[in-house]
Design a binder for these strands. Structure first.
Length: 217
DNA sequence: ATCCCGAGGG
DNA sequence: CCCTCTGGAT
């Protein structure tokens, strides 16, 4: 019973909405600057680690203006718990300088400018665009990548193609939340190494099924 | 030991 | 495409 991708996507959307009625960005922040910084810090670590260092960080550096004149060593000390701090601390200060120089110390609202910021890639840019500015964007991270592959929504292509495929599959107004739901589901059920396929609500929609089908990890 | 709600560089 | 960077959780 091969389902058409479009219909399959619709079912997945429905099931995930039921499972996660309300979705929020794990790194919830009141202003774009804080969202940008904490999202950039979240690379290769948990949001718990990020939330541990950001309060003190933002107390000392409330905006791009203050952060732009920070000493890298001080920032590094403050963010040590998130790991990869050597690169991240340098990037944060450089990023703030660029914000002050080119964007009036504000967070730019277009993808091109965001991705020029040191330490900001496609994923972070999409999170900021969709969560801070309500621009339709679908963030693809490792969870989304893995789930998309397993469910058979896209091939195991590169991130750009996966993002494009998912954007065609899901309605624009869902782009922001579907990645959060896929991420959540990836953590709760579809683990990278030991997926809990028994009792999985998406089993019927899945091309992977614990490895039964020849699909990418 | 191994992986993580990445990004940058080779 | 591949690798590396890191602390923390498991």
């Amino acid at each position: 019973m091969m389902m058409k991708p479009k219909l399959k996507a619709k079912n997945i959307l429905k099931i995930l909405k039921r499972r996660y009625p309300e979705v929020r960005c794990a790194l919830d922040h009141e202003n774009p600057f804080e969202l940008l910084v904490s999202t950039a810090l979240s690379a290769q670590c948990t949001d718990k680690q990020v939330n541990k260092v950001t309060p003190a960080l933002f107390e000392r550096y409330p905006s791009a203006m203050e952060l732009s004149s920070a000493r890298v060593a001080d920032v590094r000390r403050r963010i040590r718990a998130v790991g990869l701090f050597d690169t991240k601390s340098k990037n944060l200060v450089a990023m703030a300088k660029l914000l002050v120089k080119d964007h009036g110390a504000e967070v730019p609202r277009d993808r091109e400018s965001l991705e020029k910021l040191p330490g900001v890639g496609r994923k972070t840019a999409n999170v900021v665009l969709s969560n801070a500015f309500d621009f339709p964007a679908l963030a693809v991270d490792t969870h989304v990548k893995r789930l998309s592959g397993r469910l058979g929504l896209s091939g195991s292509e590169n991130v750009d193609k996966i993002e494009k495929a998912l954007c065609e599959l899901f309605p624009k107004e869902e782009w922001r939340d579907i990645s959060h739901r896929l991420i959540q589901f990836g953590r709760d059920v579809c683990d990278a190494r030991k997926p809990r396929c028994d009792g999985c609500e998406l089993y019927e929609c899945c091309d992977y099924r614990g490895g039964e089908s020849p699909r990418a990890r």
